[in-house]
Amino acid sequence: MDPRRPRWQSLRLIVLMSISVGLMIIDHRSENLSYFRSAVALAVKPLYEMSALPARLGAWVDRASRSHMDVREQYDRLRGEQIVLKSRLQKLEALEAENRRLNRLLAASRKVGEEVLLAQLVEVSLDPFTRKVLVNRGVRDGAYSGQPVIDPDGVIGQITHATLFTSSVTLLTDQSHAIPAQIRRNGLRVVVYGLGVPDRLSIPYLAQDADIRDGDILVTSGMGGRFPPGYPVARVTEIVKDPNEPFLGVTGMPVARLDYTRDVLLVWQVVPDDADPAQDEPDTGNGQAEAASDVAVQGANDGG
């Protein structure tokens, strides 16, 4: 036995194990540890930065070596796209206003608008059994645990831990994730579960005679109050009808490009003071990052 080794090895082991188990229990049941998490996250930030260095270098080289012609071409294409989108936006704004008027006539309570903030992926989960990503917006920017996260194509997931400067987002495909949705075609309510594998979702508990077809688009139903209604979630890709099973075996694919996107949007649900929903945004980060009132933009992107 090495005389320099510290004594009470087993006691230390037991103490440390108890601390770990205690931490896990606290972390599993409450949010109390988010400050601790923030502090450690801040301390290891340089490591994250370093690990992202090769990718960033690649992006820089790519940008530096792109020719003037390419940029020109892309500029023209994007301009064209912008004009198209803008024209669609006009129509949508008119429709939105009309919708609001009609809603008021009906005295409907669903007058919830949404505000968004652009965020960037900093890091993808290192644990192969969880499907999570880290984004560069945190409590400081108004992000909160349970906040919906979308990309231009559809829902990506929700924030599960918001620290001061960053938040971790659990993706739709995570095994612990479920999202209430409905079929856009007929409004049938379903719950979409993640499977823990990329690009596959499960839609269980549908009766054998349920009206669901290959290619159906599922959108958020707004049930549970966490996700705003109407955002695309998944496309049905496979329906297995086995008479021996009580339910249909339905699999879907996320509409959002979970594994490819870099820019995502955090969504806040705000109740507008009738006139202009863009006015009462409480939490804005820095000016250039925030997009304006975004339901319209969102509609324009997936509408056409």
Binding site: L16, M17, I19, S20, V21, G22, L23, M24, I26, D27, H28, L33, F36, R37, V40, A41, V44, L47, Y48, S125, L126, D127, T130, K132, L134, T160, H161, S168
Partner: peptide
């Protein structure tokens, strides 16, 4: 644990 966003204490244990 913090870097992998796992349950705090899981890898510590």
């Amino acid at each position: 644990d913090v870097m992998q966003f796992t349950l705090l204490g899981q890898n510590a244990l």
